[in-house]
Every structure is written in C-alpha cells, then in structure tokens.
Amino acid sequence: MSGQTVTLLEVDDLRVTFPTRTGLVEAVRGVSFSLGRERLGIVGESGSGKSQTGRAIMGLTPPQARISANKLIFDGIDLLGVSPRQRRALRGNRIAMILQDPKYSLDPVMSIGRQIVETLRTHEKVGKAEARDRALAMLEAVQIRDPKRVFDLHPHEVSGGMGQRAMIAMMLIAGPEMMIADEPTSALDVTVQLDVLGILDRLVSERGMGLIFISHDLRLVSSFCDRVIVMYAGKVVEQLKASELSQAQHPYTRGLLNCMPKIGADRHPLPVLDRKPEWAA
C-alpha cells in the first residue's frame, strides 16, 4: 500500500441523473471515495453505475444528464467548477481514460503512430522528430515488439490486444497522473487480457499513477487491484482491500463472489444471488 498517503482524487456524494420520458433516473446515487497512487477497482453488474461514475470523473457524461457532488477534486482542482476548456486540457494531459473496445476509440483513418504523435503534440510543445521518437518509445513500453511497423499501421490492421496496447500508449504518452480504465480487457482473450493488465500494472508502479479500474469481473479486479469498491444500483455497497475480499461483509459482494463457477469447486446447482430490495435503498 505504498503511496496511499497522497490523495489524487476525492469524490464525495457524486450523483448523476438522467432525464427520461418517465421521469428522472439516477444512475449514480451518492458515491464517495478517494484515490491515491494506487490501483482502485470499481466492480458492479450492468446498471450499477460504475461506468457512469468513471465518465463523470472524466467529464464525459452526456450533456442532458445532471452531475452534482459535494466534492469532485483532482489534485486540488474542483472538476465541477472549471471551465470546459480547462477540463479538456486536463483530460488526456493529466487524466486519461481507456475504454473497452479500442476499435471505437481510435481514429480509423489515421495511422496509430500519427494518432499518438498528435496526442502528444496537442499537450506538449515538441518537435516532430522528438514526438516520433517518444511515440516509438511508448509503443515499446506497452510491449509492442515491432514498434516501427505498428507505428504506420491503421487501427483495423491490428488485433484487439494490439489495438488496446496502442490505445494505452496513446493515453500514456502525455504522462497522465490518473487513468480511468473502463473494462479495458473485456473484449480481449484471457491470455492477452493478462498481458495488457501486466502493462498497466507496471506503469502504475513505475510512474506512480493512480488507476481506477472499472470492471464487472470481481475475480480479475481482486487479483489486480489494491482496493475494491463494490457498486450496486448506483451506490457503493462495500469498500475493501482486495486481499480481504474473501472476508467481504455485504451479502451482495459475497453473492457475487459465490455465484461464479470455479475450477475444482463442484457445486451443482451454483448458488444464485438473492437480490434484496434494501440493498438498493
């Protein structure tokens, strides 16, 4: 738990509300947590508000939604108070985000290398040659074996795992202090998934970055992150150290852990989650 003393991000009572035809729908209902230079996992099922939490921090909430929070502070900057321009400058420069499918996040008509160079040059004043060198170095850092070749490829010419690495390289080129990864490996094969996680892991420990890892996969999050936040129906039901997941108190967390098939555990039928209305209250 090194570096826990520094607080990068503080979230207090975050709420995201969407207007719909039938009335207001609260996707996030009072979420509070803080992030240091660590790996923080946010786990929940679809509709738990985990992704909307990440988007709200990133400032990517759809315009029709309303965000409110007592505190949404990144390194002393009130994220809800700053102008859209400052927000954009923060995004990509000091805060980065990776999404589930790199195919939708990379520009299909621009080569991977150029995208990384452009990203770098919008945030820093560097010469073309230097930008290129740094982009190549970054591609190498995310363990792309032949960075020179990949530099000139377009997103559709690379595999899912390669695309996700390129995406990470692009996000990291500006040297962000905080990264939000929303299901970064769900679209990947299991073995590739672990490679990508390995890269993220190393970057966090080497660069001292704060990482918010959003996922539905409790098993993966608990093995990867330092701390885990479990969300249900827009609320945090439990916060705990990943190593203490087996001693989770909340019935939802325990149910979620329990209902997954495990190799060697001969349980027929599998225990199912008995959702209690009071969890959402």
Binding site: V190, L194, G198, R219, I263
Partner: peptide
C-alpha cells in the same frame, strides 16, 4: 496450461516474465 493459469486471474510477476 496457459489458459488454465489465465483463468485464475492476474498474478503479479517480474516485468520480463509478462510477455508471452
């Protein structure tokens, strides 16, 4: 064996061992 290992979740290893 790789698949089996991968199914157990993430295992923190020294950097040089990560690549396949």
């Amino acid at each position: 064996r790789n698949l089996l290992r991968a199914s157990e979740g993430f295992v923190r290893t020294a950097p040089e061992q990560i690549s396949r």
